[in-house]
Write a protein that binds this DNA or RNA. Structure first.
Length: 257
DNA sequence: ATGGTAGGTGCCCTA
């Protein structure tokens, strides 16, 4: 069994002790991180390498930043979505054990109709175009991370409150669905089709964790060749319950490799 | 209608 994880860690420097203990406990083979919030020179590589991981990173100052940790050699690293001019570090792709993996941090979008919302939709359009190209390779491909989209009302604790709000608007959901229509499988939903309260993010505000005010916005999307290998997928909710938790819980995805 | 919390930065921005 081969375990992948996707986790918006919300600052890898603040969360480093938690990350290290979690890596020791869960021993994932590959970890796709988002919101590392650190430039590459200041990435805490040594502590992570000491646990047997190789690292690919694409960071920037203060915001965003993505990384891939892997127990196996990392090849063919691509920073940014090919063909998309972007000054924000939100996409990192590599090949590990013959499987293509990507760590994705889709823009939040702030509010429907804002400039940031337009940027989010533009990012998603280019993610779509690039995914279309990748799928012509007919290989196992896994894209995981923080998509900042709750695909359906089942993924939202209070659909009425969130109706047409950011993370839930029709245009965002359509963009997400277009990715699936290309042939990708939403791993969590595929194995838990009707499960309620299957959330990955709880706001720091309003006691959202304590009240279970959650949304499912972190996803694993699998190419057909990867979906054929899918065995288990779960949300590591324990990590949202600890001291100094990220506002996102990791998603764990097990493949028969 | 507003504010609540968290992280990084530098006298606010992003989420």
């Amino acid at each position: 069994m081969f375990t992948l994880a996707a986790w918006n860690i919300n600052s890898i420097r603040t969360r480093l002790p938690l990350l290290l203990s979690w890596l020791k406990e869960r021993t994932p083979d590959i970890v796709l991180l988002q919101e590392t919030k650190v430039i590459d020179d200041q990435f805490p590589s040594e502590e992570i390498e000491n646990l047997g991981y190789n690292i690919a990173m694409y960071g920037q100052k203060s915001y965003n930043g993505v990384a891939i940790l892997s127990k196996f050699p990392i090849e063919d690293v691509t920073q940014g979505i090919p063909g998309f001019e972007d000054d924000q570090a939100r996409y990192l792709e590599a090949v590990i054990k013959g499987m293509r993996v990507a760590s994705v941090y889709v823009p939040n979008g702030m509010a429907v109709g804002s400039d940031k919302y337009a940027y989010k939709l533009d990012f998603l359009k280019h993610l779509y175009l690039h995914t279309q190209t990748l799928l012509t390779y007919d290989e196992a491909f896994v894209m995981g991370g923080d998509f900042n989209i709750a695909p359906s009302d089942l993924d939202v604790y209070d659909p009425e409150e969130w109706h047409e709000k950011i993370l839930c608007s029709t245009a965002e959901r359509e963009a997400f669905r277009s990715l699936l229509y290309l042939g990708l499988t939403d791993a969590l939903r595929a194995l838990h089709p009707n499960e309620k309260e299957l959330y990955t993010w709880w706001d720091y505000q309003r006691g959202s964790w304590q009240n279970n005010f959650g949304l499912r916005i972190d996803h694993f999307l699998l190419s057909p060749q990867a979906a054929d290998l899918l065995k288990e997928v779960s949300v590591d909710k324990q990590m949202r319950d600890v001291e100094k938790a990220s506002d996102h819980a990791p998603v764990l995805c097990k493949l028969e490799l």
